[in-house]
């Protein structure tokens, strides 16, 4: 009897939590996505696939493509920055490595909006970067660095970079150096060592990083709002608008469900290639 009570102390909270605060809200969103939107902004409780059909409206297809493009570009830039960086750090001694990896995290202990504001100050027409370039006579007219796609990608890369650096670094730092030595002893050049040895070993970590960069990049509406000047929309803005201005919850819910499906497909691939779920949270 007593053991039973103890047992329920340990398992009841997690069951309640995951059913009430995770499953229930998402199931409810799923249900809403089949409701109909009335012209007053309320919901009619019926069953319709209309919301999913209207995703294929040309306007929304455009927004989808744009979000995917921004997310993919962000992901690739993060990879291109993180790989050399993680490799370079792993060449240092233990003490330096630890200092560097802590330093990587420092900007991210401040608020993400504050950092975005920092970028606004840097990127705008008479911002710091343009002023420096102008005064050095490198450019004649100020560059358009923000209020366009470029600004958004800079903001996304900046915000999401650590999610790529951390898994890559922890994977690279566990590579046995004798392996790399063996590879170069066998006459492999650096590029070959990278593609044949390092890349396969770090692939799950790379995918982990890619996942943790790609899916948030679809949803970060505030980066797009602040650096895109309100004229560019990604999926996150679309969902936000449906819920907070256009008041078409069913349609917003349908897009959210689509995002869940996309995420889930990526997770399945991640598991297929041997990634561990717990690594995603660390």
């Amino acid at each position: 009897m007593k053991n039973k009570i103890i047992r329920s102390i340990f398992i009841v909270p997690v069951i309640l939590y995951s059913l009430l605060l995770i499953a229930l809200p998402i199931i409810y969103v799923l249900i809403i996505s089949f409701y109909k939107n009335d012209s007053y902004g309320g919901m009619i409780r019926t069953f319709t696939l209309e919301n999913y059909m209207s995703i294929f409206n040309s306007v929304y297809i455009g927004i989808f493509l744009k979000s995917f493009l921004i997310a993919v570009i962000t992901m690739f830039i993060c990879m291109i920055i993180s790989y050399p960086f993680a490799l370079a750090v792993s060449h240092k001694n233990a003490k330096t490595q630890s200092i560097f990896m802590t330093l990587v995290m420092v900007p991210f202990l401040t608020n993400s909006l504050i950092r975005m504001y920092g970028w606004i100050v840097l990127l705008r027409k008479n911002g710091v970067i343009n002023q420096v370039l102008l005064s050095l006579n490198i450019i004649k007219n100020p560059l358009n660095l923000m209020y366009n796609n470029l600004g958004i990608v800079i903001g996304m890369v900046y915000t999401l970079l650590p999610f790529m650096i951390l898994p890559l670094y922890s994977s690279i730092s566990t590579i046995d150096y004798r392996l790399l030595e063996a590879s170069s002893d066998l006459g492999a050049n650096k590029w070959k060592t990278f593609t044949k040895v390092i890349l396969p070993i770090t692939f799950p970590a790379l995918f982990n990083g890619g996942l943790m960069v790609f899916t948030p990049a679809l949803g970060f509406f505030f980066i797009v709002d602040l650096l895109g000047g309100g004229k560019i929309m990604i999926l996150g803005n679309l969902i936000k608008n449906q819920f907070l201005t256009a008041r078409n919850w069913p349609f917003g819910a349908a897009i959210a469900i689509l995002l869940i499906i996309i995420t889930y497909i990526l997770i399945m691939i991640y598991r297929k290639i041997g990634g561990k779920m717990d690594d995603l949270g660390a």
Binding site: V29, T215, G219, F221, A256, L259
Partner: peptide, 8 residues
């Protein structure tokens, strides 16, 4: 909560 986009 770990994997889905926060907005969802």
């Amino acid at each position: 909560p770990i994997v889905i986009p926060e907005i969802v």
